[in-house]
């Protein structure tokens, strides 16, 4: 039954793991090592890596702990997607491999690299601190332990799914905004902020929200949905991000920050014309002063290159606006159904 004698071949084959290697002490740049081992069906990527470390190359470095999908240590990029090695079946990955029989293994992206498949997690912890990702109890500490809060099933449901998060940082690794701006709050911290803000026991909702609407905060997300597609616990992270935005608009109004104003301008345009009135979008988002100061040189360049958006009066309502709205409605219901399906799986 030991790893070294993987036998009882129900189905077995040679599999190559093409692993990203880098030890800053000796390597000037990263490279890939190929390890080809014979494996039987039903084995996870983590167990395969463990076999390589124990029997082929003990210098191969990766994190692993619980081996059961709950501690979040072994997140890595497997065939270009961030996921947990311990819950990923080798055979499933073989189906997705670009080169037959070869599984590519890389470290998570968007976090500083330490060695081989190990990345620095401190930036995630730093952002959890920055955005107060904890319940700051309404009850003074001296009173703790005396009586329980009453919490309704409805409230519990609001954050139940979010508390599944194991901080594996797969969503961080796939986030397209973080690739451009490492200061960006990150999907995981937005998710956890949402969870704290939905908790009636917490007493700093407004303060946390005020932090979230600042630069590099909740309005920087471009809704690419990569985080949600990636999440190893199937948490609807985008619902949390939308939840924070709705909450921000509800409590702080649409004039609060450029993010809120931008969202309002978008909404306005879609409702009225079914398309964006781009010429005035910067003004409506950031005001006339900011626009003149920051965008005027670019506007001249655009005029020279004849790339200016049409002036507002020339933006007519789209012909198919009725059917567009219908389609939007259908799309929304599809998304809702997907969520339902995903959470039911």
């Amino acid at each position: 039954m030991s790893d070294s004698t993987i036998q009882h071949h129900e189905e077995s084959r040679d599999v190559t793991f093409r692993v990203h290697r880098f030890n800053p002490q000796v390597d000037s740049k990263p490279y890939f090592d190929d390890y080809t081992i014979k494996l039987e069906k039903g084995i996870t990527v983590l167990r395969a890596l463990g076999y390589i470390k124990e029997h082929v190359d003990s210098t191969l470095t990766f994190r692993a702990f619980c081996q059961a999908g709950i501690c979040g240590s072994c997140a890595m990029r497997i065939n270009n997607m961030s996921k947990l090695a311990c819950t990923t079946q080798v055979w499933d990955e073989l189906d997705k491999a670009r080169e037959p029989g070869v599984i590519k293994i890389e470290p998570l992206r968007n976090l500083p690299h330490i060695k081989d498949l190990v990345v620095e997690m401190d930036p995630v912890v730093g952002k959890m601190k920055k955005y107060s990702n904890w319940v700051d109890s309404r009850m003074p500490e001296e009173e703790w332990g005396k009586k329980e809060f009453l919490v309704s099933e409805e409230e519990f449901q609001a954050y139940d799914k979010a508390t599944d998060c194991i901080l594996c940082a797969s969503c961080v690794s796939e986030c397209t905004i973080l690739r451009a701006h490492k200061e960006y709050v990150s999907p995981v911290v937005l998710l956890r902020s949402f969870r704290m803000n939905a908790d009636s026991r917490d007493g700093i909702h407004d303060q946390r929200l005020a932090g979230l609407v600042q630069d590099h905060g909740v309005w920087d997300c471009t809704h690419c949905y990569r985080c949600q597609e990636t999440c190893v616990k199937n948490i609807p992270i985008m619902d949390a991000i939308h939840g924070i935005r709705e909450d921000a608009i509800e409590r702080r109004g649409t004039k609060d920050t450029s993010g809120a104003r931008h969202a309002e301008a978008f909404m306005d345009d879609i409702e009225k014309k079914g398309r964006l009135v781009e010429a005035t979008l910067p003004i409506r988002t950031n005001g006339i002063g900011w626009t003149l100061k920051n965008l005027l040189p670019m506007a001249f360049k655009m005029i020279l290159k004849r790339r200016t958006p049409p002036p507002p009066p020339l933006v007519k309502a789209s012909k198919g606006i009725q059917s567009l709205r219908k389609e939007l409605k259908e799309m929304a219901s599809h998304v809702a159904k997907d969520h339902e399906k995903k959470s039911g799986e």
């Binding site: 109890s137 009173e143 332990g145 009586k147 809060f149 026991r201 917490d202």
Partner: peptide, 12 residues
């Protein structure tokens, strides 16, 4: 109760 007071999401 103390864990509840500091935010543990107990089932209800």
């Amino acid at each position: 109760r103390e864990l509840d007071n500091m935010g543990t999401p107990w089932s209800r």
